[in-house]
């Protein structure tokens, strides 16, 4: 597991930092060097607020190496309120209660750990909105 790779992605993994195009206003996650909409090269960091909606999901019963201990677990595509979509593990949810369209919120959880003596990777996951209005 690359230490540098996870480390350089921490703004995204911890705080959903995307970009907003200074020219056309489009918001991207993950951050982009060029706006995919207008090819502008002037984009500014833009943190996303972590609320979204479930677009699709799957429950995995066979996992890639590093995730076997978590089986079964759910992964979904989430559309954020600001527009961008991302892929995230779904947590604090009953696997049989998953529904396309359900409202979700970001939380930071352990993504995986590199054995008993390696680093622990933390990053965004999504869960059903816990307390409406709070």
């Amino acid at each position: 597991m690359s230490l540098a790779r996870h480390w350089r992605l921490r703004d995204q993994r911890y705080r959903l930092e995307g970009t907003a195009c200074d020219d056309c206003g489009t918001i991207q996650f993950p951050p982009r060097p060029l706006c995919p909409n207008c090819r502008s090269r002037t984009l500014s960091p833009h943190p996303l607020d972590g609320r979204g909606q479930l677009i699709s999901y799957t429950v995995l019963y066979q996992a890639p190496a590093g995730f076997e201990a978590q089986i079964p677990y759910a992964v979904g595509i989430v559309e954020l309120g600001e527009g961008p979509r991302l892929t995230a593990m779904l947590t604090d949810v009953d696997l049989d209660a998953l529904q396309i369209g359900m409202s979700l919120e970001m939380t930071i959880r352990k993504l995986r750990s590199d054995g008993d003596d390696g680093v622990i990777q933390y990053g965004y996951k999504f869960r059903p909105v816990q307390f409406e209005g709070a």
């Binding site: 995995l60 890639p64 992964v75 995230a88 593990m89 990053g123």
Partner: peptide
């Protein structure tokens, strides 16, 4: 952005 989320 996909694999670290446990996606196969």
């Amino acid at each position: 952005y996909e694999l670290p989320m446990g996606l196969s």
